[in-house]
């Protein structure tokens, strides 16, 4: 455990299975949400964007928390693999955050009457996106991989304060964005035939997130260790 070759081999073994399972699971969940779930009494079919918007927003935030945790490990124990994980997550988390912003905007135009409004929830999510961009820039601007890993980890760790702000923004301040439809602590403000497909979409997005991060990890390991014998052996 912990050495690059063994992690590389482990990812290579499970990857094809995980990949096909995740794609199937995602297609099934999206079909369930976008076609089989009932329409909303007020918004009609427009509400179906929730099956994309909510999972991508959740993943944008979870991705950041994962980055902060592995950043902490990278900084304290100087574990190389932790740095690689932070580096692999950054662009994926950024993409999901962007997807949440764009899908929310597309939904906002017909429902609220505007593409964008500077309320606390939307603004804090935009800050999360900028944090991701800053971390990605640090990784690409600093040439020494080790130094870049540490710099990115520090920013990931410090920026994690944005997550509770995003989460609680709709409760702390008056916002245009509605409060959460489902949480772990109370029953969802949705009927089961709507939130079950939503839950399924969230799981599917987690799987897809894992798949993309793992494939980026593989690439990262090969890039860093391209001159070693085990990489040459593996590809010959």
């Amino acid at each position: 455990m912990g050495s690059s070759p063994s992690i590389f081999r482990f990812i290579s073994t499970i990857f094809p299975w995980l990949f096909f399972f995740s794609i199937l699971f995602l297609m099934g969940s999206l079909f369930w949400g976008l076609f089989l779930a009932p329409t909303d009494y007020k918004q009609g079919d427009a509400y179906r964007i929730i099956f994309i918007h909510v999972p991508s927003a959740i993943l944008g935030q979870s991705g950041y928390i994962f980055m902060a945790v592995f950043g902490f490990i990278c900084l304290v124990w100087r574990v190389k693999v932790a740095g690689m994980i932070v580096r692999s997550i950054a662009p994926v988390g950024a993409s999901f955050t962007l997807l949440a912003l764009v899908s929310g905007s597309i939904w906002g135009k017909p429902t609220w009457g505007t593409w964008w409004v500077w309320d606390a929830r939307l603004t804090s999510t935009l800050i999360l996106f900028f944090l991701y961009i800053a971390i990605i820039s640090l990784f690409s601007v600093i040439e020494s991989k080790q130094k870049a890993d540490r710099a990115g980890s520090i920013l990931a760790l410090v920026g994690v304060a944005i997550i509770p702000i995003i989460k609680k923004s709709v409760d702390w301040w008056q916002t245009l964005h509605q409060s959460s439809t489902f949480s772990l602590s109370s029953s969802p403000s949705m009927t089961a035939d709507m939130y079950l497909p939503l839950l399924s979409c969230v799981l599917a997005f987690y799987l897809i997130f894992l798949v993309i991060v793992l494939s980026r990890m593989k690439l990262e390991i090969v890039q860093r260790e391209r001159s070693t014998n085990w990489v040459k052996d593996f590809y010959s």
């Binding site: 329409t39 009494y41 007020k42 245009l176 509605q178 009927t191 709507m194």
Partner: peptide, 16 residues
């Protein structure tokens, strides 16, 4: 400018 604020409740028309 008038913006509609949507609440967090979703339900099928029959339930509504």
């Amino acid at each position: 400018e008038v913006l509609a604020k949507h609440d967090e409740n979703y339900m099928p028309p029959e339930v509504a």
